[in-house]
């Protein structure tokens, strides 16, 4: 028996919205400790990793580990039928399920919707991602990071991110010209202004803005985002989801030929 009930179903809707442009199909692994998912984009330069802890669910039961192969597009179609205030319950009682049941219930418990989504058998291509001590970690407003990426992507396809002890600089060079946005360390009480820099070693890395803009679809999941970088390593962009877990994106850096 597997059953997972989310009090705030809208979080699940937002997660699926955040990843649906990046990955087409995913294996969700359910275990006693919660749900996890890892998937790469078709070019294998970006990866999404989701972890949801059992404690963050209103009800959670998973008697034995199961893998749920899902089409994100089809999952998205079903989740469109859930209201933003609904609870969402995922359920299956088969050991090797061919479908996953969904229950959506509104706050007054006056409307209950039930769907079943056919599952797919997918090759798992899971990568071992080591726990890394990143040499530059930036925590800032997710909306502000999203705005910077969107603005710069009209000038260039790539952005260079350079850190120092005091600031982080986002630079672009394009056919029309060049520019940069520098954000300084700011210990404001307001989330929207706050910028936390933890710089053990400065880094200078270049990334494709197209992917960063896709990651930023997760902006509604968290008011802050953390950018984790080490020289010659993939960027890790993390959105923490309250008590529930985290949504992480990894992106390979651009390198000179």
């Amino acid at each position: 028996m597997f059953e997972a009930k989310l009090q705030q179903g809208v979080i699940f809707k937002k997660i699926v919205d955040a990843i649906k442009d990046l990955v087409k199909s995913v294996n969700i692994d359910a275990s006693t400790s919660g749900l996890s998912m890892q998937a790469m984009d078709s070019a294998h330069v970006a990866l999404v990793s989701l972890k949801l802890n059992e404690n963050g669910f209103k009800d959670y039961r998973c008697d034995r580990p199961i893998t749920l192969g899902l089409s994100i597009e089809n999952l998205s179609k079903i989740l469109k039928c859930a209201g933003n205030d609904d609870t969402i319950t995922l359920q299956t009682d088969e050991e090797e399920p061919s479908s996953l049941k969904f229950f959506f219930e509104n706050q007054q418990a006056s409307k209950i919707s039930e769907f079943s989504l056919n599952l797919m058998s997918l090759d798992s291509e899971s990568l071992g991602i080591p726990d890394t001590d990143y040499s530059s970690v930036i925590q800032m407003s997710s909306a502000e990071f999203s705005r910077i990426c969107k603005e710069l992507s009209s000038i260039s396809e790539t952005v260079e991110i350079e850190t120092s002890k005091e600031s982080v600089k986002f630079s672009v060079q394009g056919d029309i010209g060049a520019g940069s946005i520098t954000v300084k360390n700011n210990q404001s009480d307001k989330d929207v202004d706050r910028v936390d820099l933890q710089i053990d070693q400065p880094v200078k890395l270049t990334f494709a803005l197209r992917y960063l803009n896709m990651f930023n679809k997760a902006v509604s999941l968290s008011s802050t985002v953390s950018l984790n970088m080490s020289e010659e390593n993939p960027l890790m962009v993390e959105y923490k989801i309250d008590d529930l877990g985290s949504l992480r994106f990894y992106l390979a850096p651009k390198i000179s030929d």
């Binding site: 790469m40 070019a43 294998h44 330069v45 970006a46 990866l47 291509e125 899971s126 990568l127 071992g128 991602i129 080591p130 790539t158 270049t206 494709a208 390593n233 993939p234 990894y250 390979a252 850096p253 651009k254 390198i255 000179s256 030929d257």
Partner: peptide, 14 residues
Amino acid sequence: NKNQNSLTTYFSNQ
């Protein structure tokens, strides 16, 4: 010109 390696260059297959 800049290129981009696959993530499998950085992370091992499991």
